[in-house]
Design a binder for these strands. Structure first.
Lengths: 134, 134
DNA sequence: AATTAATGTGAGAAAACATAACATTTAATT
DNA sequence: AATTAAATGTTATGTTTTCTCACATTAATT
């Protein structure tokens, strides 16, 4: 999942290409950056380099603007979205930790059982075999 | 399938980006173009614009060169590959045509059967109903 | 030693992009 | 109606990137 994200945030496209892909003017794109709706990378020579994520954002900005929402509103919408994403990500990770922990518990139990096998002969393998040797 | 191909042949990347992605020098890239291993598009202002396919090709060129194959060899390899691709495409299409034709045959048969229902009363529906009205 | 294939390097011109300032348009507010 | 603010257009000027072309270098082959 993360590999794809890296790819989508890779700075690849010049402003000329982005203009074509989004049908926005350079002025518009720069203006939206000025208002922090996107934050494209820069080359050593200070040229903007846009990622696929940037392009997605620009298309969304365009769409929302056409719906009559102003830049302030769009910015807020983005920040809310961002929050939601962070939260779901946190939940996901918590879920993963929970799973991992229960796995650890499970292994602990199994390990205890195996170690106890010396004294109390009721280990799994013996239990299985006992069907044939009684 | 074709939509993806269009995307992969879309002229998007400047030579600077391609240099970074392929770790080839501009000289090398232009030289390979000169020898028709790639044919990037041009902007109105005569700048090269590379597609994902171009980049793939360049990486393959690089790889084959490192294996000691010269440009002539690489060119031949590409043309052979191209031929193979064309052939498999042709086979695929022939296969599709065959399928479509047999479908047509099938429908023809069904249609003939339905039309004949007026004279010889053994149509499917009547056949079904006859179980209850005998 | 000479030739060839692949790549490096430098010059000069053109294209693309940068910022900045001022102009225009449109919609909202007074 | 006049004013203001938001969004975009336009123009000017400087810098970066890319273009082609020519010549140089390197390594392998004859």
């Amino acid at each position: 999942m993360s590999g794809n994200n890296i790819r989508r945030s890779m700075p690849l496209f010049s402003i000329g290409i982005v203009m074509q892909l989004t049908e926005l003017s350079a002025r518009q794109i720069r203006y939206y950056e000025e208002h922090q709706l996107i934050t494209p990378m820069r080359t050593e020579g200070n040229r903007r380099l846009f990622s696929l994520n940037d392009i997605d954002r620009l298309l969304e900005v365009k769409d929302l603007l056409e719906q009559g929402i102003n830049l302030a509103g769009i910015k807020k919408i983005f920040s809310v979205k961002e929050e939601v994403e962070v939260e779901t990500e946190t939940i996901k990770q918590a879920e993963k930790i929970r799973r991992d922990l229960t796995d650890v518990e499970l292994r602990k139990l199994l390990r205890a059982e195996l170690l106890q096998g010396g004294k109390n002969r009721t280990s799994l393998r013996q239990g299985d075999m006992s069907r044939f040797f009684h």
